[in-house]
Write a protein that binds this DNA or RNA. Structure first.
Lengths: 197, 197
DNA sequence: GGGCTGACAGAATTTGAAATCTGTCATCTG
DNA sequence: CAGATGACAGATTTCAAATTCTGTCAGCCC
């Protein structure tokens, strides 16, 4: 049916679709192959294992998030506003996926459980972006963080409840956004004057 | 064999033991009854359902933690030191149980997943204790938190990664204690001068 | 020849029948 | 008569057989 050549990207599109429909527990490589009208052997030509395919789907989603955040990181202007906007975006991204694509979100969560390298790299990337914003804040005289990268890791840790998928059960708590606002205020305040470590 | 009367506490002791040995997935009410040399009907006389029994075991463990923390809350002295000590104790308690009684810890984690009332109450209690310490800190001129209870909830949220069981997978991360120290410094700093919300 | 296919072995998952467990309650016992 | 018992129905779990899937590869096709 489909005439186009089989590329990793087309496979990823199909895999994402299959995961969305069947969820991480039911989706098979055979399903992905069927969706593309090819044999499963062809899928294995592009992805060594099923885990590699799943990781690639997740990596692509994480890359999209990261790119979106990087725009905020790179933009100039008040570091405090940028930090807020950056975290708001991160939290909103996660919550939106959890709401609109629960099955795809489950795939991503499962990956987190298994502490795969992909997630570690993503977290390091996010911490580095935060570190960058905080360093800018230091330059602007808004913050006084002696070790911006460590402060970045700390801000990411401290907001984990609001963006780490393992906490999904708490995301329906009506007090969540009040808690988020309070944490953010506390953190920004902490970055401003003090010597955090 | 055992001559003593059957009390809820004896049942809880036995249930805790069975959970420790078999884990939450394998432990049955029949096992608990066997351990006590009674019929399972007798256990149901004291606990309406298996879930109620499991909740009671967890509640007792949480109460022990809470009592230990309350001593720190109630003690006088520098609020900042107390806040640190309180959080250190909370984190240490959780990590110790995770290490020494993984099966019992799994029971407790499962409860958290199911967002039972028991856990909600425990969290509210912890937040209130933190609120109390922060209020003391305000009085001592160490902190400047306009809403101590909200600040308490915020501190609990911000340190969730280090004590909430859902994060257990990350507790083996070698950078964890560095992150914990950085978060704590940031939070204490935030409480000191600012107006968090 | 580069890329795709489908047969294949071993691993993982599904299935359904048998075993066990949960929760109730009529009955027993001290 | 307060408290314990064990038989019971329905729900859940277990186990082993059968199916399906993963990953490989010799050969096919364009």
């Amino acid at each position: 049916m489909t005439e186009a050549v089989l590329t990793p990207d087309r496979i990823l599109d199909a895999a994402e679709d299959v995961l969305r429909r069947f969820g991480p527990a039911k989706a098979t490589v055979l399903d992905v192959a069927r969706a593309l009208n090819v044999s499963h052997g062809s899928v294995y030509r592009h992805f060594k294992t099923k885990a590699a395919l799943r990781d690639a789907v997740t990596e692509r989603w994480l890359a999209r998030v990261s790119t979106r955040l990087r725009e905020i990181t790179a933009a100039g202007g008040d570091a405090q506003d940028r930090l807020r906007q950056w975290l708001d975006t991160l939290v909103e991204c996660k919550h939106r996926l959890a709401r609109t694509d629960p099955e795809l979100f489950a795939t991503y969560t499962r990956l987190t459980d298994e502490t795969r390298e992909v997630v570690t790299a993503h977290v390091a990337d996010l911490a580095a972006q935060l570190g960058r914003i905080i360093a800018d804040g230091n330059d602007q005289g808004l913050f006084a963080a002696p070790d911006p990268l460590l402060a970045g890791r700390a801000v990411l840790s401290a907001t984990a409840r609001f963006h780490n998928p393992v906490n999904i059960a708490e995301w329906s708590d009506p007090a969540l956004s009040a808690d988020y606002a309070a944490v953010l205020d506390l953190l920004l305040n902490g970055l401003r004057t003090g010597r955090p470590e």
